[in-house]
Amino acid sequence: MDDTVVGNRSSPSYRWEVPPGRNGWAQPTHGPAPANAPASAPAVGAVAPGTAALLILADGRFPAGGHAHSGGAEAAVKAGRIHDAVTLEAFCRGRLHTAGLTAAALAAAAAAGVDPLVLDEAADARTPVPALRTTARRLGRQLMRAARATWPSPELDALAAARPRGAHQPVVQGLAARAAGLDPRAAAYAAAYESAGGPASAAVRLLSLDPFDATTVLARLAPEMDRIAARAAEAGHRALDEGPGALPAAAAPLLDIAAEQHAAWPVRLFAS
């Protein structure tokens, strides 16, 4: 990759190092250790401190624009692929294990300290349709705004400056988690939860689905979210040394195809 290297990477590692900013209080305190940090960071898979911060980040009310996006549910409802709780569950399960896993691993890698510009490029390669690239960058930009206000960090500032039109949302999510003092697995949880939670809450509005049914769908998927988050965190750590090729690239054809269809609709409830 010689002259094409982006960001500030010291070969052969993919770690990202940002010079500390003026305001020191927002530096990650429990997050994954930068290369030169003392070995006091929690081990992979350890229960993370800062669980409350994860709840804030993953909360559907976190003001980062998610409420206007259906995660593909609006197109799937129109095509008849989601029409009740059972089909919603199948949809959410498929999204969690494909786009959700991919997003969770990107988030985990960003939280682990992999160069976010390398991850942003990896996210582009994993997002073959422009409708979803646009959505990911728009949501990334909105999340960046909320995260910088909530957990100020020089790393977030640096990525915002490098990608003023927005980096891919999972990359920002991982960096936001890091700024909030969360570990890679927590970042993966936030992304994984959103991948299923977004369509589930949209389906309530789209189908007038019983909200208890939609929440039950999420509860039934919870053990799978645990596994996805663990797998994503493991891959995120490996990406520190192996690069973004170590990250999953799980894809779902209908999510891609339908997203491009949805973007062309003249009338719709959700932005994606």
Binding site: D2, T4, G94, A250
Partner: peptide, 26 residues
């Protein structure tokens, strides 16, 4: 030119949860 252009993994059938649902193959 050494940079990622497309990276996609497709998983279907047993062992690929949700593969036949509305998000993946429908």
């Amino acid at each position: 030119a050494g940079r990622p252009l497309l990276d996609q993994e497709l998983s279907y059938g047993p062992g690929a949860p949700g593969w036949d649902g509305g998000a993946v193959l429908g």
